[in-house]
Amino acid sequence: MDRPDARMDATPISAQQYDSWTVQECAGMEVVDGMVVASPSAPKRHNRLARILANALDAAAGPDWNADTDFDVRLQDVPLTNRRPDVVVYRAETIDLTPTRPEHVLLVVEVVSPGSETTDRIVKVDQYAKAGIPFYWRIEQAATGVPIVYTYVLDPATKAYRDGEMFTGSVKATAPFAVTVDLGVL
Protein backbone atom coordinates (compact mmCIF):
# COMPACT_ATOMS: atom_id res chain seq x y z
CA MET A 1 0.00 0.00 0.00
CA ASP A 2 2.04 2.89 -1.27
CA ARG A 3 -0.74 5.19 -2.40
CA PRO A 4 -2.51 7.52 0.04
CA ASP A 5 -5.86 6.96 -1.70
CA ALA A 6 -5.64 3.32 -0.57
CA ARG A 7 -4.94 4.21 3.05
CA MET A 8 -8.37 3.28 4.43
CA ASP A 9 -7.90 -0.45 3.87
CA ALA A 10 -6.83 -2.81 6.66
CA THR A 11 -3.14 -2.93 5.74
CA PRO A 12 -0.80 -1.38 8.32
CA ILE A 13 1.39 1.39 7.00
CA SER A 14 5.01 2.02 7.87
CA ALA A 15 6.63 5.27 8.93
CA GLN A 16 8.46 5.31 5.59
CA GLN A 17 5.19 5.04 3.64
CA TYR A 18 3.53 7.74 5.72
CA ASP A 19 6.52 10.05 5.38
CA SER A 20 6.27 9.82 1.57
CA TRP A 21 2.77 11.35 1.62
CA THR A 22 2.19 15.10 1.35
CA VAL A 23 0.91 17.22 4.21
CA GLN A 24 -2.42 17.49 2.40
CA GLU A 25 -2.67 13.71 2.06
CA CYS A 26 -2.05 13.28 5.80
CA ALA A 27 -4.58 15.91 6.88
CA GLY A 28 -7.60 14.66 8.75
CA MET A 29 -6.06 11.45 10.01
CA GLU A 30 -3.97 9.88 12.71
CA VAL A 31 -2.12 6.58 12.60
CA VAL A 32 -2.42 4.18 15.54
CA ASP A 33 -0.43 0.94 15.59
CA GLY A 34 0.07 1.29 11.84
CA MET A 35 -3.62 1.72 11.07
CA VAL A 36 -5.07 4.92 9.63
CA VAL A 37 -7.77 6.48 11.79
CA ALA A 38 -9.87 9.17 10.15
CA SER A 39 -10.31 12.36 12.14
CA PRO A 40 -13.44 14.19 11.07
CA SER A 41 -13.39 17.98 10.90
CA ALA A 42 -13.87 19.51 14.33
CA PRO A 43 -16.68 21.93 15.16
CA LYS A 44 -15.89 25.65 15.01
CA ARG A 45 -16.10 25.98 18.83
CA HIS A 46 -13.49 23.23 19.20
CA ASN A 47 -11.14 24.89 16.71
CA ARG A 48 -11.58 28.31 18.30
CA LEU A 49 -10.77 26.98 21.78
CA ALA A 50 -7.63 25.33 20.43
CA ARG A 51 -6.54 28.46 18.57
CA ILE A 52 -7.15 30.82 21.52
CA LEU A 53 -5.21 28.50 23.83
CA ALA A 54 -2.38 27.99 21.33
CA ASN A 55 -2.01 31.76 20.88
CA ALA A 56 -1.89 32.33 24.65
CA LEU A 57 0.59 29.49 25.20
CA ASP A 58 2.77 30.73 22.34
CA ALA A 59 2.86 34.25 23.79
CA ALA A 60 3.63 32.99 27.31
CA ALA A 61 6.15 30.29 26.39
CA GLY A 62 9.12 32.52 25.76
CA PRO A 63 11.70 32.16 23.00
CA ASP A 64 12.56 28.50 23.66
CA TRP A 65 9.07 27.12 22.96
CA ASN A 66 6.44 27.42 20.24
CA ALA A 67 2.76 26.55 20.49
CA ASP A 68 0.78 25.55 17.44
CA THR A 69 -2.14 23.49 16.16
CA ASP A 70 -2.76 20.81 13.58
CA PHE A 71 0.41 18.79 13.04
CA ASP A 72 1.59 15.27 13.80
CA VAL A 73 3.55 14.12 16.81
CA ARG A 74 5.31 10.82 16.04
CA LEU A 75 4.85 8.77 19.23
CA GLN A 76 6.52 5.66 17.82
CA ASP A 77 7.89 4.35 14.53
CA VAL A 78 7.05 0.64 14.85
CA PRO A 79 4.19 0.11 14.74
CA LEU A 80 3.68 3.63 13.45
CA THR A 81 1.71 5.86 15.81
CA ASN A 82 1.17 9.51 14.87
CA ARG A 83 -1.22 11.62 16.88
CA ARG A 84 -2.40 15.09 15.94
CA PRO A 85 -3.05 16.93 19.22
CA ASP A 86 -5.25 20.01 19.14
CA VAL A 87 -2.40 22.12 20.58
CA VAL A 88 1.30 21.27 20.88
CA VAL A 89 3.99 23.20 22.75
CA TYR A 90 7.34 22.16 21.27
CA ARG A 91 10.99 23.24 21.31
CA ALA A 92 11.42 26.29 19.06
CA GLU A 93 14.72 24.93 17.72
CA THR A 94 12.86 21.94 16.22
CA ILE A 95 10.47 23.98 14.06
CA ASP A 96 11.95 22.58 10.84
CA LEU A 97 12.37 18.98 12.04
CA THR A 98 9.91 16.41 10.77
CA PRO A 99 8.52 14.38 12.34
CA THR A 100 8.01 16.08 15.67
CA ARG A 101 8.91 13.56 18.36
CA PRO A 102 7.91 13.32 22.04
CA GLU A 103 11.32 14.57 23.18
CA HIS A 104 10.60 17.82 21.29
CA VAL A 105 7.26 18.32 23.06
CA LEU A 106 6.56 19.93 26.44
CA LEU A 107 2.74 19.96 26.42
CA VAL A 108 -0.09 18.49 24.37
CA VAL A 109 -3.71 19.63 24.63
CA GLU A 110 -6.82 17.81 23.48
CA VAL A 111 -10.20 19.52 23.18
CA VAL A 112 -12.89 16.90 23.76
CA SER A 113 -15.71 16.84 21.21
CA PRO A 114 -18.59 14.43 20.72
CA GLY A 115 -17.07 11.23 19.40
CA SER A 116 -13.60 11.81 20.88
CA GLU A 117 -14.46 11.38 24.58
CA THR A 118 -12.92 7.94 25.18
CA THR A 119 -9.91 8.60 22.98
CA ASP A 120 -9.10 11.97 24.60
CA ARG A 121 -9.88 10.92 28.19
CA ILE A 122 -8.27 7.48 28.23
CA VAL A 123 -6.38 6.34 25.12
CA LYS A 124 -4.35 9.45 24.27
CA VAL A 125 -3.56 10.15 27.93
CA ASP A 126 -1.88 6.76 28.18
CA GLN A 127 -0.07 7.11 24.84
CA TYR A 128 1.28 10.58 25.60
CA ALA A 129 2.43 9.51 29.06
CA LYS A 130 4.18 6.39 27.77
CA ALA A 131 5.89 8.56 25.12
CA GLY A 132 7.25 10.77 27.93
CA ILE A 133 5.48 14.06 27.14
CA PRO A 134 5.75 16.04 30.39
CA PHE A 135 2.33 17.79 30.41
CA TYR A 136 -1.15 16.93 29.12
CA TRP A 137 -4.19 19.20 29.23
CA ARG A 138 -7.73 18.16 28.38
CA ILE A 139 -10.46 20.69 27.67
CA GLU A 140 -14.03 19.59 28.24
CA GLN A 141 -16.78 21.59 26.60
CA ALA A 142 -19.36 21.72 29.39
CA ALA A 143 -23.10 22.05 28.73
CA THR A 144 -22.92 25.54 30.28
CA GLY A 145 -20.66 26.63 27.43
CA VAL A 146 -17.81 27.41 29.85
CA PRO A 147 -14.84 25.12 29.14
CA ILE A 148 -13.25 23.09 31.92
CA VAL A 149 -9.50 22.53 31.64
CA TYR A 150 -7.92 19.54 33.38
CA THR A 151 -4.14 19.56 33.62
CA TYR A 152 -1.87 16.57 34.14
CA VAL A 153 1.84 16.25 34.97
CA LEU A 154 3.95 13.24 33.99
CA ASP A 155 5.46 11.10 36.74
CA PRO A 156 8.62 9.96 34.95
CA ALA A 157 9.08 6.96 37.24
CA THR A 158 5.70 5.43 36.40
CA LYS A 159 5.23 6.94 32.91
CA ALA A 160 1.73 7.95 34.00
CA TYR A 161 0.13 11.34 34.50
CA ARG A 162 -0.95 12.62 37.89
CA ASP A 163 -3.68 15.20 38.30
CA GLY A 164 -2.65 18.83 38.16
CA GLU A 165 -4.84 21.90 38.45
CA MET A 166 -8.38 22.25 37.10
CA PHE A 167 -9.70 25.51 35.66
CA THR A 168 -13.21 26.60 34.70
CA GLY A 169 -13.31 29.24 31.99
CA SER A 170 -10.15 31.15 32.84
CA VAL A 171 -6.81 29.37 32.97
CA LYS A 172 -4.15 30.74 35.32
CA ALA A 173 -1.56 28.00 35.14
CA THR A 174 1.94 28.06 36.56
CA ALA A 175 3.19 24.90 34.85
CA PRO A 176 4.77 24.20 32.49
CA PHE A 177 5.13 28.01 32.55
CA ALA A 178 2.92 30.87 33.68
CA VAL A 179 0.01 31.50 31.34
CA THR A 180 -3.33 33.22 31.74
CA VAL A 181 -6.12 32.95 29.20
CA ASP A 182 -9.90 33.32 29.36
CA LEU A 183 -11.51 30.48 27.42
CA GLY A 184 -14.96 31.40 28.69
CA VAL A 185 -15.43 34.15 26.13
CA LEU A 186 -15.78 32.62 22.70
Rank of each mutant, 00 (worst) to 15 (best):
N47P: 05
I52Y: 07
A10D: 15
T100S: 04
V149W: 01
D77L: 08
L97Q: 15
R3N: 15
T151A: 13
D120Y: 03
P40T: 10
D58G: 07
V73M: 02
I122M: 12
C26G: 12
L80F: 05
D64R: 14
G164H: 09
A60K: 03
Y150C: 11
G164I: 11
P43Y: 09
V111G: 01
Y90G: 01
F167S: 00
D5K: 08
A38D: 13
A160I: 09
A61W: 00
V149P: 01
P63F: 05
E103T: 14
V87Q: 00
A10H: 13
E25G: 09
T118W: 12
R91S: 08
D68E: 13
Q17K: 10
W65V: 03
T94S: 07
P79S: 12
I95H: 08
V153W: 08
V111N: 00
A173G: 07
T11C: 11
L186F: 12
D33V: 10
A59D: 11
A142E: 15
D19W: 12
W65C: 04
H46C: 10
G34M: 10
Q17S: 09
A173F: 01
S113P: 05
T118E: 14
D96G: 08
A131N: 01
A92Y: 00
V153E: 14
R91T: 01
P63T: 07
T98C: 09
D70E: 15
V181L: 02
T180G: 09
R84D: 01
R84K: 13
